[in-house]
Design a protein around this nucleic acid. Structure first.
Length: 216
DNA sequence: GACCAGGCACATC
DNA sequence: GATGTGCATGGT
């Protein structure tokens, strides 16, 4: 199959059916990065509660999280679940920002993607999806974000084998699409929204999914 | 009351 | 390198 044409067809189909997503919700790049860590294996609704707690306590800045002790931080982010481990991960992240970027996330924008991504992945608690979410949604770097939804949706519609790894799925997109921040942003958001709507666990055959028109 | 949610690190074999 | 497990709240 022509992978590039298929990917573009999927993108258009999802955009037509769902409309633009306006991701990632957040008032600042740092808030987006914090959200990326808090949403690990967690419903976004719960993450919003944690983020609102941080906002109300004036803690949603690099400096504030750098200064606060881990226990107190954990108490503010309780609604997001895994709060002890996530408090540690946020501290790891801002400690790294202190060393690497003078506690200003935006100072990282000058780094090329190829050097920045390995640096992010070296921070304990930041894996591929979190790193790529920060790179794309907070720093506007052209990297495609893969998640369980991407894998599930593409597997269900016969586009990838079930055991495909994160990097393999990512390469499918990166090798067949021009690097385009706005498009990568929208495409990933559309996949998540479409999967939540049509490719749920309770709907294993993806009834109603517009992608059925592609692969039927 | 079971199941799930926009992962990741670590232990063990 | 593959597989299993802990982390934890809140919505459905």
């Amino acid at each position: 199959m022509n992978k590039k044409a298929t990917l573009l067809d999927i993108y258009k189909l999802l955009l037509q059916n769902l409309g633009p997503s306006n991701w990632w919700p957040g008032d600042s790049p740092f808030e987006i990065a914090v959200g990326a860590i808090l949403t690990q294996n967690t419903n976004w609704h719960n993450v919003e509660k944690a983020i609102n707690n941080l906002k109300q306590a004036n803690l949603l800045t690099e400096e504030a999280i750098f200064q606060i002790d881990e226990q107190t931080l954990a108490s503010h982010i309780k609604p997001s679940g895994f709060f002890n481990i996530k408090a540690k991960r946020l501290k790891n992240f801002v400690t790294w920002l202190y060393q690497e970027a003078n506690l200003n996330l935006l100072n990282l924008q000058n780094y090329p993607l190829e050097t920045l991504r390995p640096k992010l992945l070296a921070v304990s608690g930041i894996g591929p999806e979190t790193a790529d979410s920060i790179l794309l949604y907070a720093l506007n770097k052209p990297i495609f974000v893969v998640d369980v939804y991407t894998k599930r949706m593409f597997f269900r519609h016969g586009l990838i084998p079930e055991e495909t790894t994160y990097s393999e799925v990512q390469e499918l997109f990166m090798d067949n699409l021009e690097p385009n921040v706005k498009m990568f942003n929208e495409f990933h958001a559309l996949i998540v929204r479409a999967c939540k709507k049509w490719c749920t666990k309770k709907n294993p055959k993806c009834e109603q999914c517009p992608l059925k028109n592609l692969t039927a």
